[in-house]
Design a protein around this nucleic acid. Structure first.
Lengths: 211, 211, 211, 211
DNA sequence: TATGAATGAGCATTCATTCAT
DNA sequence: GATGAATGAATGCTCATTCAT
């Protein structure tokens, strides 16, 4: 039990509370190590409620993944719509995306760092949400590059998402850096090459002697 | 039991066999979902042997992480040493790195996709190995950019490692692409920006007005 | 919820509805495997109503047993009263008894095939109702045999009841047979011997050689 | 833990011990109310052993049913083989059967008084064993009646088994009666009618008019 | 060296039962 | 009178770990 205990909440509210608690615990411990008791405690309810609302630990996990995936997609797509012009949209979208990844560690961790240990129904939903996120990023990238092949855009999206993911670790050791500033640095590093990559241009590696 | 059962092997060989089995199971199932019985079976020995050699499941996992981290570092540093000239070294090192990541899914997964669910001793070793890997990449990047600040190099290294990680997923859906070719595409995308990023040059995002 | 939901029914009607539902579920699943939720659902009410009316699952089960035991006793005693003369009464009673057993599987199952799994209050009521049924059958048997010892009649009653019970299984695989016909067959098999048994006559088993 | 604890027993012995304990608990409590802990305790082992040997509570129950069904069948068929001549065989077999039922309450209860509450795999095995027992009795009955239709024999077998079952209750209240003596009484009651029943002879119930 | 036998501890899940409305 | 919301208390099952041989 935490804080002020409010009993008899409407179903919808309780559901969100439980998902909130689930997100925390799942992201901190991982799916298997997460214990339903802890989630229930954190949500300020008893264990059976979790099962009443979500049917199983797996069911709760799926609900968590779904909500977080949808939030992520919506959030950065919303941001993208704000921009005027393809480039500005891409910029705004990626900033939002990065901000989200940096600011919602829990959600991101659950979505992107729990893959191998889960199976069955869960794996399907994880895949679905990830695809959805990746598709959104890919779409954003593609739209900023009129004639670009979609395969190129997909490649770029994967690289960007992976970089963003990894940079959240970097950020943890550089607390001064704001997500915006990290986005800026990443964009600086990638922007030019990305444009030419999307145009299909190929650069040749330097051969030290013969390599 | 797998294949031909060879009894009374020297300690060193047994150890490696068990680690091999551990890598497979840990990477397939994740640390918690991995069951020691399965590992023992796969290694063709009985469970108590695992405990005799590694003390605990955690001990085995640490051994796995250590071996894999060292292998990864060594492999791509060895490759880097082959190149002549800073750029060529970076290129060779990153190719080796990428090839390793793509070709040793098991090792990579265990090292880089199991973080949140483990704690204690394990977390320390994971951090240590990851840092070691990251330091090697950072060093490679830094050495190719004489005057670059190390913070910049670290940033670039994180971005590269993350991108490489994520692109292994992309590769799974594009079986035709060789690691070399993926490296080439990634380098194309990053090379120019990376150089200027390392020089501390800052590019300004497009404003919403003019695309 | 089943059918049309009728609210605000008088207590007596509700009670019977709940017992009806209880009989179905208890007989289908057994006492322990029966779930109060299912009973409430089937009765078209909410779970707390069950507790309001019967206090506990056990209370409901006792009510079920009681009603069914009384019905069974009454039904076949009523039939017995119709007959003129001791033999005819026995015949009519046993036919009614058998018809009941065959036609009210639910009730019979609850009364006669749930013994070992229940305890406490329930066991007492089960015993009471069974004794009552058995006493009625015994009485019927005894009255048809003027001078017979009551112990003989009790023995015969047990045999008859057990046979009838078991034959309900047989009937399930011979759907063409009516309860009347099965009664006839059973009576054929037992009638003569029963009379002499009640008279205390003893027959000696055949000795194959010496047995 | 009971009595002297003997550890490290060979698998076969432990298995039988666990089944013994299972029989006791299942027959006393019924399948659902039986608690695996109690069974393990009674067997003098820890719960995981039960699961190691039988996989699940259901698995243990199936093992119990199987062993008891086979024992019952074998025992009374063995006895039947002793007799010389059809009648004597029937007599010997039925005595053995009855003796078994009376003497192995546990086994009998588990086999014949747990039907409705179990489902799935268990139900199948229960059905199989019961059929096997019933088939053996039917065979015995049929063989004593050369030209009898098998349907008649089956009918008679059901009646006999049911009567025997029910009479075990009667015996509990008449401790002085030996199984042999009860068998004798039952045979007395049934023998003559059974023979004519097997011949297909039909007797007509007394009409209400003349007694 | 190597293992079959055994277990303590924990976890997901269920269910009879009770409030607060 | 009637119920949606909530829970304490079990219970089946698993797994890392350890003896005894």
């Amino acid at each position: 039990m935490s804080e002020k205990v409010r009993r008899r909440l409407p179903r919808q509210v309780r559901e969100q509370q439980i998902i909130d608690a689930g997100m925390q615990v799942f992201s901190k411990r991982g799916y298997h190590a997460a214990v339903v008791d802890e989630i229930a405690d954190l949500a300020g309810i008893s264990k059976p409620m979790v099962y009443l609302y979500f049917g199983s630990k797996e069911g709760l996990f799926i609900a968590c993944i779904r909500r977080e995936g949808e939030r992520l997609t919506e959030e950065f797509q919303g941001a993208a719509r704000e921009g005027h012009g393809a480039e500005a949209q891409l910029w705004a979208g990626l900033t939002a995306f990065f901000t989200f990844v940096a600011g919602h560690r829990d959600g991101w961790v659950v979505l992107y760092r729990q893959a191998p240990e889960v199976g069955g129904e869960v794996a399907a939903e994880v895949t679905r949400q990830r695809s959805s996120v990746m598709a959104a990023v890919t779409g954003l990238v593609a739209s900023s590059s009129p004639g670009g092949a979609s395969e190129e855009a997909e490649f770029v999206a994967h690289a960007l998402v992976g970089a963003a993911d990894s940079l959240t670790d970097w950020m943890e050791r550089h607390p001064g850096e704001s997500p915006e500033r990290v986005t800026l640095r990443l964009m600086n590093m990638v922007w030019i090459g990305m444009r030419s990559a999307l145009r299909g241009e190929v650069w040749t590696p330097p051969s030290g002697e013969g390599a």
